[in-house]
Computed example of a mutant assay.
Amino acid sequence: MILLIDAGNTRVKWALAAPGAQLGAWTASGAATHADMPQLELAWCEAASLHGIRRIVIANVAGNALRVQLEYVLQRCLPDVTPDWFASVPALAGVTNGYSNPAQLGCDRFAAAIAGHALAPDAPVIVVNCGTATTIDAVTADGVFLGGMILPGLGLMASSLARNTAQLPQIAQDGKLPDGFADNTDDAILSGILAAQSGAIEHACAAHHGAACIISGGAAPYIAPMLKVPYRIVENIVLIGLHAAAN
């Protein structure tokens, strides 16, 4: 079994993949916030006991402090398995990294690009991951990662308005939008941040002619219905990319 770990800025997501399993076909999976590391330790120790884990692949964008925590937990659960720390390289798993400095590309974005190319082979693709930040990236039909955009996620947009504008409230990003223009402040904020996110995605799709749009992340169910382009929602796209790379 391979333990795949996506250590993001807010949560740590993981999945267990059997040898030869299809992409995204997990034997087990889960997620926890950074503060819930004991929960992850219990889950991983149980997975190691039940299934046996021979390899660990980790994408970490949350910094060195979280890396140290993950190393400590994994050493307790799987002392004989040395983790592979996934990093952006010039080429891997059929994807060529077109960044001017390939190592500068966030490893989560590189993994998502690999997943997008694996899920939509022989087609141009826009890969969107809607987490703490929203990333929107373009991959050509022959697997060249062209680059993309990074913008604040829904939660960051909403909290920024609430924090920096005295008269505006903090709003829930999962509220229901009214038809037409908003007639109250909460709906106006929600409408604005959803339009900003969906508009950026549509702009990328228009620039990358004929591209399939794959959207993932915790905010994807709120943003996707706003899109005026065809799309496919895929859960845990970074884990799928790690799986494709590990294969």
Rank of each mutant, 00 (worst) to 15 (best):
V95S: 09
A133I: 13
V238K: 01
G199A: 08
V81L: 11
G143V: 14
G199H: 02
G241R: 09
A141T: 08
L50C: 00
P225S: 07
N60L: 04
K13S: 03
N236W: 10
A118Y: 05
Q167W: 05
G30Y: 12
H34Q: 02
L16M: 10
L74R: 03
A123E: 09
A91W: 13
M226E: 10
A31W: 13
V125S: 07
M37E: 05
G148N: 02
C45Y: 02
S88K: 03
V81E: 09
T10C: 11
S159Y: 07
G30F: 12
A158Q: 09
V81T: 15
G98W: 15
Y231M: 05
A48P: 01
A123V: 06
V229R: 15
L161F: 05
A17L: 12
A245T: 11
L227C: 07
C45R: 15
V144G: 00
I237A: 02
E46Q: 10
P38M: 14
G94R: 09
T10G: 02
F181R: 13
A32N: 09
D108Y: 07
N236D: 15
L151M: 13
P230N: 02
I171K: 10
G52M: 12
F110A: 08
V95Q: 08
P121Q: 06
G143Q: 01
V68H: 07
S29K: 11
A224N: 10
K228M: 09
D80R: 14
S100N: 10
G155A: 14
D108S: 06
I114S: 09
A32E: 13
W44V: 15
I53D: 01
A206T: 09
A47G: 07
D183N: 05
M149E: 02
P102N: 13
D183M: 13
I214W: 12
L23T: 14
W85E: 03
L16I: 10
L78N: 04
G175Q: 09
K13P: 01
R232M: 15
C213E: 11
R163T: 15
G116S: 03
P221R: 03
I114Y: 13
P102Q: 05
V238N: 00
P79E: 11
V81H: 03
L119F: 12
L154R: 07
R109I: 04
M37S: 01
T165Y: 01
P38L: 15
N97H: 08
P230A: 03
A62L: 02
T82K: 14
L92A: 03
G148R: 00
M37L: 15
P83W: 07
D108L: 10
Q197T: 07
A17D: 02
D36I: 00
L146Q: 05
